[in-house]
Simulated scan of single mutants.
Amino acid sequence: MLRRGEFGEDIHALLGPVDTALADLVQRGQDSGVFGRHLPADVLSQVAWSAVFAIAGNDLSRKTLAVSAPTITSLLLLGVPEPRARALADRRS
């Protein structure tokens, strides 16, 4: 699994634009009422992104989770209701 601390400042510099883009996306979702406001946008985007990496890293070794698992989990963390998260994931598969 990608752990930023293991790679020092280089990984932070490389991923900085991605972090900013994700935080902006989450902020827009919060502003429109699609995503929850239980955390600030920059923190919430990192939590959701970290979940995707954690699930993907874990699943690579076990090959047991469905492809939709990271999508549904990140949407739930973002505050999307479960039925809507599942419906969105089903549309993508």
Results as ranks from 00 to 15, higher is better:
Pro83Asp: 03
Val52Lys: 04
Leu78Tyr: 02
Pro17Val: 13
Val67Lys: 12
Ala13Phe: 15
Ala85Gln: 03
Leu77Glu: 07
Val34Arg: 14
Arg84Trp: 02
Glu9Thr: 11
Ser61Ala: 07
Ile55Thr: 11
Leu2Tyr: 12
Leu78Ile: 03
Gln30Phe: 00
Ala51Asp: 04
Met1His: 13
Gly5His: 09
Ala41Gln: 07
Thr71Leu: 12
Leu65Tyr: 06
Ser68Phe: 00
Leu2Cys: 11
Ser45Thr: 02
Ala48Met: 00
Phe35Gly: 10
Phe7Val: 09
Asp19Pro: 05
Ala51Glu: 03
Leu76His: 05
Arg3Gly: 15
Ser45Cys: 05
Ala87Ile: 02
Met1Lys: 09
Phe7His: 12
Asn58Val: 08
Asp19Ile: 01
Arg84Met: 07
Leu88Cys: 09
Asn58Pro: 02
Thr20Pro: 00
Pro81Val: 04
Asp19Cys: 04
Asp42Ser: 15
Gln30Cys: 00
Leu88Ala: 08
Gly16Trp: 02
Asp19Val: 10
Lys63Met: 06
Asp90Met: 03
Val26Ala: 09
Thr64Leu: 05
Asp10Glu: 14
Ala54Val: 02
Pro40Gly: 07
Leu78Lys: 01
Ile72Gly: 08
Leu14Tyr: 14
Arg91Trp: 06
Lys63Tyr: 00
Thr71Val: 09
Ala66Ser: 08
Gly33Asn: 11
Leu14Glu: 15
Arg62Asp: 10
Val43Glu: 09
Glu9Leu: 13
Pro17Asp: 13
Ala56Ser: 04
His12Trp: 11
Val18Asn: 03
Leu78Thr: 02
Ser93Leu: 14
Ile11Lys: 08
Val47Trp: 00
Leu2Arg: 09
Leu77Met: 05
Ala56Gln: 04
Asp59Pro: 08
Asp90Ser: 07
Gly36Leu: 10
Asn58Ile: 07
Thr71His: 04
Val43Arg: 12
Ala21Met: 08
Arg4Gln: 13
Val80Thr: 06
Asp90Cys: 07
Trp49Asp: 13
